[in-house]
Measured scan of single mutants.
Amino acid sequence: MTTFKLIINGKTLKGEITIEAVDAAEAEKIFKQYANDNGIDGEWTYDDATKTFTVTE
């Protein structure tokens, strides 16, 4: 398992979430479901060097 981080730069929600996932594809699926569940819709980026996803509304 690898640790992945999501940085949320939303209009109403900001913060960071860290999860353990098998790979970046699994982490992205989990993070996008979390964002969808919380009404966050924005532009996604991923930095493989730091294993960090960012979503900006």
Rank of each mutant, 00 (worst) to 15 (best):
residue 46 Y to M: 05
residue 23 D to A: 11
residue 7 I to R: 14
residue 4 F to W: 06
residue 49 A to R: 02
residue 7 I to H: 09
residue 2 T to G: 05
residue 1 M to N: 09
residue 50 T to P: 04
residue 33 Q to S: 11
residue 19 I to C: 01
residue 42 G to P: 01
residue 27 A to Q: 00
residue 50 T to C: 02
residue 10 G to P: 05
residue 6 L to W: 05
residue 25 A to V: 13
residue 55 V to M: 12
residue 45 T to A: 03
residue 39 G to I: 13
residue 51 K to C: 04
residue 53 F to H: 06
residue 14 K to C: 06
residue 39 G to C: 02
residue 24 A to R: 10
residue 10 G to W: 14
residue 17 I to C: 01
residue 31 F to I: 13
residue 45 T to L: 09
residue 40 I to D: 01
residue 27 A to K: 00
residue 17 I to T: 10
residue 15 G to F: 12
residue 28 E to M: 11
residue 6 L to V: 05
residue 18 T to M: 09
residue 3 T to Q: 04
residue 32 K to N: 06
residue 37 D to F: 15
residue 6 L to I: 06
residue 52 T to S: 13
residue 3 T to M: 10
residue 13 L to C: 02
residue 56 T to R: 14
residue 17 I to G: 04
residue 47 D to C: 05
residue 8 I to M: 08
residue 44 W to D: 00
residue 23 D to S: 06
residue 19 I to E: 06
residue 31 F to Q: 00
residue 28 E to T: 12
residue 16 E to R: 08
residue 33 Q to F: 08
residue 54 T to G: 07
residue 38 N to I: 04
residue 36 N to L: 13
residue 3 T to G: 12
residue 13 L to R: 09
residue 8 I to W: 11
residue 13 L to G: 10
residue 30 I to H: 15
residue 45 T to Q: 12
residue 27 A to L: 00
residue 47 D to E: 02
residue 2 T to H: 15
residue 17 I to R: 03
residue 11 K to Q: 03
residue 37 D to G: 14
residue 32 K to S: 11
residue 2 T to C: 02
residue 14 K to G: 10
residue 21 A to N: 15
residue 9 N to P: 04
residue 18 T to K: 05
residue 8 I to F: 15
residue 6 L to G: 04
residue 30 I to A: 04
residue 47 D to H: 06
residue 3 T to E: 13
residue 7 I to P: 00
residue 48 D to W: 04
residue 51 K to Y: 08
residue 27 A to M: 01
residue 21 A to P: 00
residue 22 V to A: 14
residue 4 F to L: 01
residue 43 E to I: 07
residue 22 V to E: 06
residue 2 T to K: 03
residue 25 A to F: 12
residue 39 G to H: 10
residue 16 E to Y: 12
residue 27 A to I: 03
residue 35 A to H: 01
residue 41 D to T: 12
residue 40 I to S: 12
residue 7 I to D: 06
residue 24 A to H: 13
residue 52 T to F: 15
residue 43 E to H: 10
residue 31 F to D: 00
residue 39 G to P: 07
residue 21 A to C: 02
residue 42 G to Q: 03
residue 26 E to K: 10
residue 17 I to N: 13
residue 46 Y to G: 00
